[in-house]
């Protein structure tokens, strides 16, 4: 089985615009950047968090703390897969107590990853609040989770694959819909 691209839904400019918009929305809703921590979820949430933080810094002028979260050890499907997935490093900069943690991921799908991320953040302390920003929301939630900031809503069928490519990992910025072909 191979993957075939059906449609490109965002290019590099679209992604840049979405990031800028999300940065503004986060600042607007939280009335500035004080007490904010952006935490990107591995793998592609991490560079997105860096980009959003940079955008926020250029608007606000102050430095925004950014962390990386690896949620592998909190996944609820580990007993189902045959061999264990690779565990990446988690790096949360300062304490999360009393802070607003904005979780950042590339695609919001079933919501299980976010569930795991919230559990893991709770083990680091007691944040004042948690918010969620995603580049793409493709629907098909299996748990009651919704995003506070969304770059683009993309209605999909469950069989389709949303492929997010980012310069930091994949050499170029692009979001496309793919499907599996025999």
């Amino acid at each position: 089985m191979t993957k075939r691209e059906k449609a490109q839904i965002m290019d590099s400019d679209d992604i840049a615009r979405a990031i800028t918009r999300i940065a503004h929305q986060i600042l607007e809703r939280n009335r500035g950047a004080s007490d904010l921590i952006l935490v990107g979820i591995r793998t592609r949430g991490a560079p997105l968090a860096e980009r959003i933080a940079k955008s926020m810094e250029s608007i606000e002028g102050s430095e925004i703390p950014v962390g990386i979260l690896d949620i592998t050890l909190y996944r609820d499907d580990l007993q189902l897969v045959s061999k264990q997935p690779v565990v990446g490093k988690t790096d949360i900069p300062a304490g999360v107590d009393g802070k607003v943690v904005v979780l950042i991921d590339d695609v919001l799908f079933t919501g299980r990853t976010i569930r795991a991320a919230m559990d893991e953040i709770m083990d680091f302390g007691r944040p004042k609040g948690m918010q969620l920003a995603v580049l793409i929301d493709r629907g098909h939630r299996e748990v009651p989770i919704r995003a506070d900031y969304v770059g683009k809503n993309v209605p999909t069928s469950a069989k389709e694959i949303i492929s997010v490519a980012l310069k930091e990992h994949d050499g170029a910025d692009k979001v496309s819909v793919e499907e599996l072909v025999q």
Partner: peptide, 22 residues
Amino acid sequence: ETAGSFVEISERPIKKVPVLRG
């Protein structure tokens, strides 16, 4: 490499992850 990712867990306030639960 995997062990390198586990070093940090023992430095957390709650030094426990749910991976082998059950």
